[in-house]
Design a protein around this nucleic acid. Structure first.
Lengths: 226, 226
DNA sequence: ACCTGAACACCGTTCAAGT
DNA sequence: ACCTGAACACCGTTCAAGT
């Protein structure tokens, strides 16, 4: 959207002089830089770590400069969230519909786990273009597989619910291995109140990926057109 | 835990005089009052609405008085959350194991939906006694139903994931009917990019309870011991 | 068109003190 | 044992102004 620049560029001069005087001179602010830095900050410090002031600090600008490029803090969250949910498309090898659905959902889950704050944020924010694209793809795949039109929406929401629950839970538990061990210890102390889950070591169960695949399989069995 | 009081009570005098002078005289602060008022505030204003200062205001006390009864704000969240997850037990009529599991999960979901903030909070907080009690019950029921010991934990986490995802999603969508309509309108404007979910009106689909029961049925089919 | 600092109305919590 | 106010180090955002 920037105005067209003159073809004759004076880049040579800037490249020689500026970097010498301020070697880490920041590129100008932009929506893209703000969003990318917000993601960095969220990855490093979590949801509560994102602060307009800290964000501006990292960008080497004044706090209020951000508000030229961005509406408010909520806007930053929405943009950071969607930027993390980009879909790179299915692998080249052809697959049956079931393999395709599994791939879409596992890729979605993997994207969120790379940025654990995104899973807890997603249900609370407006749906951005990238997540809508994933839903569109899912819907098309299910239709093509022969799921009746009347059942597609219910199927999508069931899958959505399962993926979101699994990912939010895993992301939260992962953030706090110590807490989990402490919880299981507390459980052991109270073992007369919770004997069954104490004995089965429920809180230490670690096979997240297996459990995810397992339950997803059950859902797809049920959703399959007969 | 309070010290034993003298048997001879002077209650009569207090009841006559105090209420006349300060008709809305607050009972003394206590952990229970703080938690109950925190739940009120959360119900009314959501997660961001809970503030130590606002909480103290509602209780008619100074902010710092709260800290005598409570460690910090996180503590208030933990206590409010667990207080809302109390389980009243199964209905009297006997049921098969599957009916029992469905009842436990639907009751859990209903408790969270009565306090929509609780669903989004639960995965981020330590597991309190009430939620542990529900997991214990679930674990016992599945074992009794004949699910192999090695499979019980995976089964519980699948059900947990599904219930949490469904409830968080529903609670978030419910909070913002207008937003949803706006989202579907935005979708219509972009209908060339998302033709399938635009045509199926995915974002306006409203049968949450039906979809929940549906997917839960599929999971239980898969989990059933053969 | 883009950036800024001062100011406002909030936060959670520490501390030293009151009864 | 229980409660308090002042103070500190933070927030997001408005506004009026600079270039």
């Amino acid at each position: 959207m920037a105005a067209k620049r003159s073809g004759r560029s004076k880049r040579g001069i800037n490249e020689r002089l500026q970097p010498l005087q301020e070697p880490r001179s920041e590129p100008p602010l932009s929506r893209e830089r703000i969003v990318a830095t917000a993601v960095e900050l969220l990855d490093a410090q979590g949801v509560d770590g994102l602060t307009m002031r800290r964000l501006a600090d990292r960008l080497g600008s004044g706090v209020m400069s951000l508000y030229w490029h961005v509406d408010n803090k909520e806007d930053v969250f929405d943009l950071a969230l969607d930027s993390v949910l980009e879909y790179r498309g299915p692998p080249q090898i052809a697959q049956d519909w079931r393999g395709e659905v599994v791939h879409v959902l596992e890729d979605w889950r993997a994207s969120m786990l790379r940025h654990p704050w995104s899973a807890t944020l997603l249900p609370r924010r407006a749906l951005g273009p990238n997540i809508l694209g994933r839903l569109e793809l899912l819907s098309k795949t299910l239709s093509r597989a022969g799921v009746a039109d009347a059942d597609v929406n219910a199927a999508i929401w069931s899958l959505w619910n399962y993926v979101m629950g699994a990912t939010i839970t895993r992301a939260s538990f992962d953030l706090s291995d110590d807490d989990r061990a402490a919880a299981q210890q507390r459980l052991t102390r109270l073992s007369e109140r919770y004997p069954t889950i104490e004995r089965s070591r429920l809180l230490l169960d670690n096979d997240w990926d297996g459990a995810f695949k397992n339950g997803l399989g059950f859902l797809l069995d049920g959703l399959s057109p007969k």
